[in-house]
């Protein structure tokens, strides 16, 4: 047995070294969670409009197009749980906040990060934002290892890219991400993405998300901050494959919240002002589309507000 233990020890030395170097590389890599937190913390007192939501608003809303000082805190696959927790955590510091734009995407009401195809994001909210999803325990090893948090394949791709970055391409200091790869705009892309989103939608999450929004809106109202719901524009190839019953449920859920808390709702998902030219793929706007959409948000939602900071 002694021979085996010694050999095993020697055998494991290079593996341990390799893993340590890999972890080190990942730990020094900038990521969108730490950057967003840093920017939000530095801008907090000035922010008048906060944009929440998943990647549709991350890539589709440029706060610089607003007539008020805005910050886009949306992130890829950001759930309502994190939208509301992040805002509430910084609410006392955002002393100028007047409007919160809440992007409700197709999966939002049924979505939680731990049941999606990138559950690693939960660990980054815990590490970077200090917001731990209840099912994640303090002793979960994923909180302490970025290889495990990202998952082996993704972590290895970062290593191959020289641990350059985990930021969205074209990430801006106002939280907007301009770039990203251009994807196909066709029937199969629409079908695959709609099906992929369907897979991530779990009925058991619905009640929790509605309840989180109720508590959240109640807190905003107490501070005279207006919550505004919106649905971002989607390409017709994607819209074609959305479940109509789910869309009705989304509509009636938002209407229900709006009628209780007297808030506004804007639905752009089939807005004919957006054509194929505005999309970089079936669910996300490209740079020009995002600027167009942000200006529309400004004209239709924000223009009645007066920003003392911009005067």
């Amino acid at each position: 047995m002694k021979k085996f233990v010694i050999r095993l020890f020697i055998f494991l030395i290079p593996i341990s070294g390799f893993i340590a170097a890999w972890e080190y590389g990942l730990s020094r890599m900038p990521d969108s969670y730490s950057m967003k937190r840093e920017h939000l913390e530095s801008l907090a007192p000035k922010i008048e409009v906060l944009v929440l939501g998943p990647s549709h608003s991350l890539r589709g809303v440029d706060p610089d197009c607003f007539s008020m000082k805005g910050y886009n805190v949306a992130n890829i696959q950001q759930s309502i749980y994190y939208d509301t927790r992040i805002t509430l955590k910084y609410l006392d510091k955002m002393t100028s906040l007047k409007v919160v734009l809440i992007d409700i995407s197709y999966p939002s009401f049924w979505f939680q990060v731990h049941t999606c195809d990138e559950p690693f994001r939960d660990y980054f909210y815990a590490r970077e934002w200090g917001i731990r999803y209840p099912s994640i325990k303090w002793y979960d090893i994923h909180l302490y290892s970025k290889i495990l948090a990202y998952g082996n394949e993704k972590a290895w791709n970062f290593a191959l890219s020289g641990f350059s970055t985990d930021l969205e391409r074209g990430y801006q200091e106002n939280g907007w991400a301009i770039g990203g790869k251009k994807g196909p705009l066709n029937d199969s892309a629409g079908y695959n993405l709609a099906k992929a989103h369907e897979k991530e939608m779990k009925q058991e999450n619905f009640a929790d998300n509605i309840s989180d929004l109720k508590i959240f809106i109640g807190e905003l109202k107490k501070r005279n901050i207006e919550p505004v719901f919106f649905i971002a524009p989607y390409n017709h190839f994607y819209n074609k494959y959305l479940d109509k019953n789910r869309m009705k449920t989304i509509d009636s859920a938002i209407n229900g919240l709006c009628s209780i808390y007297s808030c506004r709702k804007y639905d752009y998902h089939t807005d004919s002002r957006f054509t194929d030219e505005d999309f970089r793929e079936v669910t996300h706007l490209n740079k020009d589309g995002a600027i167009k959409f942000s200006k529309i948000l400004n004209d239709e939602i924000l223009k009645n507000y007066n920003s003392p900071l911009l005067k």
Partner: peptide
Amino acid sequence: RWAVYYAAIFVIGVYGIFE
């Protein structure tokens, strides 16, 4: 033999799907 073991561990560790 060890080179093959390391390669096998690498392939499983990096290209395995642990979901």
